[in-house]
Design a protein around this nucleic acid. Sequence first.
DNA 1: TTCACTGTTCCGTCTTGCGGAACAAATTAA
DNA 2: TTAATTTGTTCCGCAAGACGGAACAGTGAA
Lengths: 255, 255
Amino acid sequence: MNGDRDRELIQSDETLFAIIDALKQSDGVGVSQVASAVGVSKSTAHRHLSTLLKHQYVVRTASGYRLGLRFLDLGGHVREQYPSFADVEPKVTELAETTGELAQFIAPEHGKGIFVFRRTGEKAVRTEARVGKRVFLHHTAAGKATLAAMSDETVSEIIDRWGLPAKTDATTTDRDALFSELNLIRDRGFAIDADEHLTGLWSVGCPVMATDDRVLGGISVAGPRHRMKDAGIESALPELLQAIASEIELNITYR
Amino acid sequence: MNGDRDRELIQSDETLFAIIDALKQSDGVGVSQVASAVGVSKSTAHRHLSTLLKHQYVVRTASGYRLGLRFLDLGGHVREQYPSFADVEPKVTELAETTGELAQFIAPEHGKGIFVFRRTGEKAVRTEARVGKRVFLHHTAAGKATLAAMSDETVSEIIDRWGLPAKTDATTTDRDALFSELNLIRDRGFAIDADEHLTGLWSVGCPVMATDDRVLGGISVAGPRHRMKDAGIESALPELLQAIASEIELNITYR
DNA sequence: TTCACTGTTCCGTCTTGCGGAACAAATTAA
DNA sequence: TTAATTTGTTCCGCAAGACGGAACAGTGAA
């Protein structure tokens, strides 16, 4: 098919990933459905699934194959293997309890943002995001704060790779507009997202730096517009966030 | 090597899993180290790693390859795909806050127990376990409660598969002793783990049933021996646990 | 019962994953 | 600085083995 520069990849792995993706799309599917979804023969799908089953990456239920809890193990391991994250988690909890709203920590990877920690306070809104979810960095306050902590060159590479798609009407989709917003964020030290991710949801975010002066990710608080305004989205909340970010950075440095 | 009954498996997948495992063992390794750890040539390791990288399952850092946060995504997805788990999480939190101790929920899979939810209360001990960790079911109170909710036949299969290794001096390692203990648990409705998982750590667990009368997993509270005794490990705590388990089951039924 | 659908096993073909070697790039030694 | 050693990457030829298709075996519905 595309016969020249895939010599450096392994096609069996790619079909394996396609199968994992198919299982992720719809839980409880049979061999035949997987085969047709991925575009391989039944026997191929069957062999891949048997291998996955042997290594306990999937389980068989009455309704078919599903991804197994082994992925929870790998996910937990990955989160634990970044030593700095251990200092972030309690602070996210503290932030959620202090504000009563939704507190989150997003880490950048492959140019996107991944929700690493999420804690809901008393009155926090229930959004659909869950730990591990990948979002565009320019869609959230924590993500924009993270971008602002990177060099323009790095940000450019990210934009080239993923573009600047809109999520709501308020999302920044213009390259120059984003860069000037990032400069503003660099000046004042925090980012604001007003309806840019979900309409009605506002959030404040600020970056958390690692010891090597590279950005670890962004921490944020999110809530409905009126409550965020009342809580001081331009002054009190940013100060609280920056204080917490500093504490995290200190803990990382002197751990 | 073992040349007859591996026709139903895919060896590329197996080396892929071996590579993932090698990456899990030690963070930040290079192509050569991976190759020698897994026992394949450099070129093979390189191609697998390139494929993993393309699909964002790994990241490259200065120190080498590491597993990426994509596994956090899959882990979160898996936990979310079991609809009943959504009813379990808040109750684990409630349990941790009420008791101030460590509350956990373990689900069985492939004959082992996986920590699905973990919440630490105010005075909770800090153990090494993390979400996703796999443990022998007979090592914990929640696990034994889960076993007790299964048929003897199923339990037998699990013992045949994994054995009954000891974790501490107090671990039940005898098959008959375990079965009679399971009968006791079935009678009184809860399981106790006294030093069987970690010396000094006691816990109470009870099963949580799904609507189809199969066991969903076990919920437990753990703490240091003296505090657990004071809190009524034989009466007050089991009652609390059973109440919470019933609430979960009701929520699942009428969701 | 038959039918239509599953999941599983077998087999022959030829794709393609494999190791080894050559190369390039980076790090260390001298 | 150069030399030496180790790293990551690319190329190539071969045969291991992944592939699709067909035959088989369960399972449930009509």
